[in-house]
């Protein structure tokens, strides 16, 4: 009935349909889904994922060029496997996978940035709707931080990291959160990648809460802790 719906509808549908097909691929770096024309007119700026922060694998279309980078190639293959609907992770634990993360103090991540909670639940809902295996977690006091002295010296503790195998998504989260540090690492198994030190998380009640709604409840993040670490984190 409405003008918008009738005139805009077809366009929306096309866009939506397109987006679905992309989605299943798009969580690995290979299928960042660059339009063909992008490849054509791209120069080094286009593919130089030169951020100090993230070195995610280049699109597969040019992987021949960068085949010298063994690690990158492995990561690309791995993330490809994750995106397939094969749930048997155990078979792949021999191969190193690339994990990307943003990290900041727990208060910032879990207490102050309420939109962060909304983004994570939105993504979880989407993964449920599309039967996609979860590839992002919250890690409280992650052990992998020991390998990043340049990060830990600037970090208030306890720290919380958002970890994902989806590099571009972590780049997006860095853009959104801004006040976070970002890096990546390789790990042999998911347990190793997401290992954490038991920590008690406590937040003081905000001095003045003037919002016309209650705060999100303490503990909302438990849905995102790595499997098996939930008891530990509650200590």
């Amino acid at each position: 009935m409405s003008a918008a719906a009738s005139s805009l509808g077809p366009g929306c549908l096309t866009a939506s349909a397109k987006a679905t097909t992309h989605f299943h691929n798009s969580h690995n770096a290979k299928a960042v889904s660059l339009p063909v024309s992008a490849n054509r007119n791209s120069n080094h700026t286009f593919f130089s994922f030169n951020s100090k922060v993230l070195a995610f694998p280049p699109p597969l279309s040019i992987s021949t060029k960068s085949s010298s980078s063994v690690k990158t190639a492995v990561a690309a293959v791995d993330s490809d496997q994750i995106s397939s609907s094969d749930p048997s992770d155990n078979n792949k634990q021999q191969e190193a996978k690339r994990y990307y993360f943003v990290v900041a103090n727990a208060k910032f991540m879990l207490d102050e940035e309420e939109h962060f909670k909304e983004l994570l639940f939105e993504r979880l809902r989407l993964y449920g709707e599309r039967n996609k295996e979860q590839d992002f977690w919250l890690v409280i006091e992650p052990k992998f931080l020991d390998n990043f002295p340049n990060i830990t010296k600037r970090l208030k503790r306890p720290a919380v990291a958002l970890v994902s195998t989806n590099g571009p998504w972590i780049t997006f989260m860095k853009l959104r959160l801004d006040r976070v540090l970002s890096e990546s690492y390789a790990a042999e198994s998911i347990e190793e990648a997401l290992a954490s030190n038991p920590t008690n998380i406590e937040f003081e009640k905000p001095e003045k809460w003037v919002a016309p709604y209650p705060k999100y409840e303490y503990g909302w993040w438990e849905a995102f802790l790595p499997p098996g670490s939930k008891e530990e984190a509650k200590v």
């Binding site: 679905t20 889904s33 130089s48 995610f56 989407l126 571009p168 780049t171 997006f172």
Partner: peptide
Amino acid sequence: LNQDEFVALLQEFKTDYNQ
């Protein structure tokens, strides 16, 4: 142009959370 931020955003928008 920080193309990796744009590529990341493009992936987010293609995901189409509210389809």
